[in-house]
Nucleic acid binder design. Structure first.
Length: 735
DNA sequence: AGGATATAGATTTTT
DNA sequence: TCTATATCCT
């Protein structure tokens, strides 16, 4: 292949993928192998070399962030607009399809999207109305059930309902769907399912898109669920007879980084792809441009313990690098302190804090880490908190807007009919709900009718009518306002702003700020600036869709130099020079629950692989031998994943560095107040160490008091439980 | 309507 | 142990 500007600075494998002739392709892209680069260059190649119009290309991702990055990089590369290209998330593109064909799928033009919080509230109401035993059936489980079925492409009538549980869930699913349909509401799973049904059942629509999209590219393919895969298959026309058009699908993914099986991702889709699509060329990207050799060989060794892999081994031309530090902490506080001391050392050597990531298995672990960072005055940022459009006050405001856009939106009405309180209590609402149920109408209409027909009387009727008036008047008044001004008026006239202003405390102040920020966001919301949104959609509906589908990840002050804290899951796709993997203990990572179910352990191991391969220069793994879990002190052992790392790649950190324990705040921490750690270590024992007693047998050092030979030491004996002993007399042996 | 008290439940997350 | 929510009071 002769050199081409698009192929410069790519390795052979990358070139093969970018410059391939038109065909189905499976790109197995290992961590840090330049996956996005390949995708972006491939799209540019299709346009520049194969002279394809951007109109005929669709690229699908899972997150908005990935979609935005891809579009930006393609535009930089080709230097022209990619507006006609469909680049987006599965949900975003499905939404687009439904908007364009709302009549074909039986939705009102102004249908709205329910996020998972809305969905849960909706289910709660429905389950109440079905008079289900609330002890036995929870909205959470019902939500899980329904979404799982939708992800499998199943409607209530597909369920046989043989067992009692399923029969009840089926009933809930049914009632929920009826309620959503009546209110013009679509949940996330429904977006995908409805779009799938549209393509499946409507030949004209399907063929239109098949003709249009000659090339389909799917990122993070290992995370696709059944309905997403079915979607791709339909769009590509795979397996269909007599086609006058030929479509090509490129999937990019890494089976070793599939960590979302628990929410329906089907790793098997990668295998299935080879069966469903003819003449697939598989290209492996195994050269890693991120990590040191040490980190890669450790990660390779760990993942090698999984079976059924497509097979891939990362390598690098880079240096060996430092060994992986392994710190066996006495407890979680010790672990956090060790980490913060290491970060201080890193920072003092002139390195940036934002280059450091602390990764943990579960969110609950962040608290202790935060305390230690706070104490050491190290700034930090936690990834994946509550997002802007998910905040209570913002959702309240949006619910008013939704009601303006669509009076039938029962979920929105329920949320704000008495927020702020306007004398419409539970009793009145019950009557309205019942009325709506009997008449088969929306809550809005029922409320209005019941109040006018004097079914509701006195104060209740007046309150309901006042609410009805408020909404109708708001629509009249703000109908031709700019979006920002409209929202501003709604927030003020509804009394929302006043309600939050009346509350006191820091929390209330932020809420007021957030409401103002929402007005700001509306002012800055420019639909014309949004590629792929050229279909007619009112500014209000455009903004509501934006809020539901892109709930706004980036928080403020992200430019401050700060350590990043996040779960292993949210670290996927990111990289950091220095990475700490914390709490690498049996029962925590792999998690206890994953040990019970087949296949889950392998996913935990992939998660470990993902975590390790985030590190560029240095990886530090730590675990605590004692950890408080739900208030209970528990003994933990090192995770099996640690034993899967070759010992030549590991460096066992034996002792605390001196400075890490020079803390002068005695109240900090639960243990060893008074004596210093160093003084204790003079006794020859360490916290967490295994010891043997002539009579009591073997045990682990838990705690100590005092220093020198007179110090007392607490040992948790394997057979007898914990005992306090005086070091000088106990004649303990190390073992 | 709001404040105090009981009780369950507690991986992982994007859209 | 901590938290979110449900229920019970006033």
């Amino acid at each position: 292949m002769t050199s081409h500007p698009l192929l410069e600075q790519l390795n052979d494998k990358q070139c093969a993928a970018v410059g391939a002739p038109e065909r189905h392709m499976l790109v197995l892209a290992g961590a840090g192998s330049g996956k996005t680069r390949v995708l972006v260059h491939r799209i540019a190649w299709l346009m520049q070399e194969l002279h394809l119009s951007p109109y005929s290309i669709m690229a699908v991702t899972f997150t908005n962030k990935a979609a935005a990055e891809m579009r930006g990089r393609v535009e930089d590369l080709v230097g022209s607009s990619t507006r006609a290209m469909w680049i987006g998330t599965f949900h975003g593109l499905a939404h687009r399809l439904l908007r364009a064909h709302y009549m074909d799928v039986g939705l009102p033009q102004n249908f709205q999207i329910l996020d998972s919080d809305d969905q849960q509230r909706m289910l709660k109401r429905i389950m109440r109305s079905l008079n289900l035993d609330e002890k036995r059936w929870s909205p959470k489980q019902a939500q899980w059930f329904i979404n799982a079925k939708k992800d499998e492409g199943l409607r209530p009538h597909h369920l046989d309902g043989y067992d009692f549980n399923e029969r009840t869930y089926k009933e809930i699913y049914d009632a929920y769907q009826v309620a959503c349909d009546r209110a013009g509401l679509v949940d996330f799973a429904e977006l995908l399912l409805r779009a799938h049904e549209l393509l499946r059942d409507n030949r004209i629509v399907r063929e239109h898109y098949q003709r249009r999209f000659r090339h389909l590219l799917v990122d993070e393919f290992q995370d696709t669920n059944s309905i997403q895969y079915a979607w791709i298959k339909l769009l590509s026309g795979a397996g269909e007879e007599k086609k006058e058009h030929q479509n090509f699908v490129t999937i990019v993914g890494d089976d070793d980084q599939s960590i979302y099986g628990w929410r329906g991702a089907k790793i098997e889709n990668i295998h299935q792809f080879n069966r469903d699509f003819p003449n697939v060329e598989t290209i492996r990207l195994e050269q890693n441009y991120r990590s040191t050799n040490t980190i890669l060989s450790a990660a390779n060794s760990v993942i090698a313990n999984n079976s059924d892999r497509l097979g891939k081994e990362l390598w690098t031309e880079g240096s060996t690098g430092d060994p992986i530090d392994l710190y066996a902490a006495y407890n979680e506080i010790d672990e956090a302190r060790y980490i913060s001391s290491q970060i201080e050392a890193w920072h003092e050597q002139g390195n940036a804090l934002q280059d450091v990531a602390l990764l943990y298995r579960s969110n609950a672990q962040s608290r202790v880490l935060e305390e230690a960072l706070l104490h050491a005055r190290i700034p930090y940022r936690i990834y994946g908190g509550l997002r802007f459009f998910d905040r209570q006050e913002v959702k309240d405001a949006l619910a008013y807007l939704r009601l303006l856009a669509n009076r039938d939106d029962d979920a929105a009405l329920e949320r704000v009919i008495n927020t702020p309180t306007r004398g419409i209590g539970a009793r009145t609402l019950d009557i309205v709900r019942e009325g709506a149920r009997q008449r088969g109408t929306s809550l809005w209409l029922a409320a209005k009718q019941l109040a006018t027909e004097k079914v509701l009387t006195g104060r209740a009727a007046n309150a309901v009518l006042a609410f009805v008036d408020l909404i109708e008047q708001l629509e009249d008044e703000t109908g031709d306002y700019s979006l920002g001004r409209q929202v501003d008026t709604v927030i003020k006239s509804s009394g929302l702003m006043a309600m939050y202003q009346a509350e006191k405390g820091e929390k209330a102040e932020t809420r007021v700020e957030n409401l103002k920020e929402l007005v700001n966001a509306c002012d800055n919301f420019d639909q014309l600036d949004r590629p792929g949104e050229e279909e007619e959609l009112s500014p209000l509906n455009g903004f509501l869709a934006h809020a539901a589908l892109e709930s706004g990840d980036e928080q403020a002050d992200e430019h401050q130099d700060a350590v990043q804290l996040m779960t292993l899951h949210s670290a996927k796709g990111l990289e950091f020079p220095l990475v700490f993997m914390c709490g690498v203990e049996e029962g925590l990572f792999p998690s206890q629950q994953s040990l019970d179910e087949a296949g889950r352990l392998a996913e935990e191991r992939r998660l470990c692989y993902v975590g390790m391969t985030r590190a560029m220069q240095k990886l530090v793994i730590s675990y605590a031998e004692n950890r408080r879990v739900y208030g209970q002190e528990k003994l933990h052992t090192a995770s099996r994943f640690i034993a899967e790392i070759p010992s030549e790649n590991l460096h066992h950190v034996r002792m605390q560095s001196r400075r890490s324990f020079s803390t002068d705040t005695p109240s900090y921490g639960r243990f060893h107040t008074g004596a210093s750690h160093e003084a204790f270590e003079e006794t020859g024992f360490q916290l967490g160490q295994r010891v043997r007693h002539v009579k009591f047998g073997e045990g682990t050092v838990l705690n100590y008091e005092g220093s020198g030979p007179q110090s007392r030491i607490q040992v948790n004996f394997d057979d007898l439980g914990s005992k306090w002993l005086v070091v000088a007399y106990a004649r303990l042996e190390r073992c």
